[in-house]
Simulated scan of single mutants.
Amino acid sequence: MTTATLTSAPVTAHWRDFLALTKPRVMTLVVYTGLAGLLAAPGRIHPVLAFTAILCIALGAGAAAALNQWYEADVDAKMKRTASRPLPAGRMDRQSALHFGVGLSFFSVILMGMATNWLAAAVLAVSILFYVIVYTIWLKPRTAQNIVIGGAAGAFPPVIGWAAVTGDIGALPVALFMLTFFWTPPHFWSLALFVRTDYAAAGIPMLPVVSGEVATRRQIWLYTAIMAIAAMAPVLLRLTGLIYGTAAFVGTAIFAVLAFEVYRRRETDPARMTPERRLFKYSILYLFLLFGAVVADRWLLA
């Protein structure tokens, strides 16, 4: 796929292509952590407003994903796992993707402000801008540490959900932000290990491409240790109870075992990287588990 193809005359995109721009599978985790922040917050919010707040988080995440794909269309065309996306596959023109992403961004932020409060709307706006400008445009093509700093974009949803209910930002959503922030590097680098040839072909300086596998495995283990501290922080700070404490201890222990398996291996064949794939898949379940435990603490032990 060439740049000329990507910027050719407008084509009529199917609604499924616009849906694909929002990365629905990635959005699931974003919506879930935002919902957890909303349900864990003290106070009450009308169910209709709660639904609207979560909808805005979903729309904001979808808008950021669409703008990411608009900007990276040429790069996506060079990687096997992204070549079938609407833009590199030629099913949509870039202008349509840009207009869709910008329009969805403004709509989600304005609706959030009108339905809940403008603090939640402001944090939502910051999360979109951070993902598009700081991560996609600035960090990702320039530094192997892109996912470390850029991972903050995916850590905002629990803060937004909490703020939608309370109108402020408390200690617990900040702790959940830090957990997600430090979870992102081992989660993403485990994926990067077995798709590193894609990143190399596209010229993206992901850690396995720039520093090699050994350094990446070492960094996965290091950030797992830091993440473990962040996971236990809500318990140590008495922000959560027994349910979360148990889930965090057991879940993090399993995560550490899987991360250690990745750390001690020296495999170079992407097809044989079973521990790396196992860690990547479990890391998603891990975040679902811990955020669910936060809500269970709030509702069962209140």
Results as ranks from 00 to 15, higher is better:
162 W>V: 06
215 A>I: 09
84 S>V: 07
81 R>N: 08
67 L>R: 00
245 G>T: 04
51 F>I: 11
41 A>N: 04
88 P>T: 12
188 F>Y: 07
62 G>H: 00
187 H>N: 08
54 I>Y: 04
154 G>S: 11
72 E>W: 10
186 P>Q: 07
211 S>V: 07
121 A>H: 07
66 A>E: 02
161 G>R: 06
120 A>K: 02
253 A>F: 01
223 Y>L: 06
39 L>C: 10
189 W>Y: 08
149 I>H: 05
77 A>Q: 07
74 D>M: 06
289 L>P: 09
273 M>E: 02
254 I>M: 13
8 S>H: 15
188 F>A: 00
148 V>K: 06
36 A>K: 06
135 Y>E: 06
239 L>H: 06
131 Y>Q: 06
115 A>Y: 06
49 L>T: 11
161 G>I: 06
271 A>W: 10
168 D>R: 11
142 R>I: 08
52 T>H: 03
264 R>N: 13
134 V>Y: 01
76 D>E: 01
2 T>Y: 15
182 F>I: 02
123 V>I: 14
126 V>L: 11
62 G>N: 03
72 E>P: 08
156 F>I: 05
38 L>T: 01
9 A>G: 02
165 V>N: 04
32 Y>D: 00
193 L>N: 03
268 T>A: 12
62 G>K: 00
79 M>T: 14
264 R>T: 15
200 A>K: 13
5 T>K: 15
62 G>Y: 00
143 T>R: 10
184 T>F: 03
260 F>N: 15
131 Y>D: 12
201 A>D: 15
100 F>A: 03
135 Y>D: 10
290 L>M: 10
88 P>V: 01
162 W>M: 12
179 L>I: 15
108 S>F: 00
2 T>Q: 15
19 L>K: 08
289 L>R: 09
139 L>D: 12
97 A>K: 01
7 T>H: 11
203 G>L: 05
126 V>T: 03
222 L>G: 00
199 Y>E: 01
76 D>I: 03
103 G>W: 15
125 A>Q: 02
152 A>N: 09
265 R>W: 14
11 V>N: 01
114 M>D: 12
145 Q>D: 12
53 A>I: 06
46 H>W: 14
267 E>F: 05
92 M>Q: 03
7 T>D: 13
238 R>W: 09
179 L>A: 12
126 V>Q: 00
170 G>Y: 01
223 Y>Q: 03
202 A>S: 09
297 D>S: 10
56 C>Q: 03
143 T>G: 12
140 K>S: 09
217 R>Q: 10
72 E>Q: 14
32 Y>V: 06
59 L>W: 04
237 L>C: 14
55 L>S: 05
11 V>F: 00
257 V>A: 04
205 P>M: 09
171 A>Y: 11
131 Y>I: 01
76 D>A: 05
133 I>V: 15
260 F>I: 13
242 L>N: 12
47 P>Q: 08
260 F>V: 12
223 Y>W: 08
102 V>S: 04
1 M>C: 11
191 L>S: 07
224 T>P: 06
73 A>M: 02
106 F>H: 03
119 L>H: 11
75 V>G: 00
130 F>A: 04
282 Y>Q: 06
6 L>E: 13
136 T>A: 07
242 L>E: 14
246 T>P: 05
15 W>R: 10
56 C>L: 07
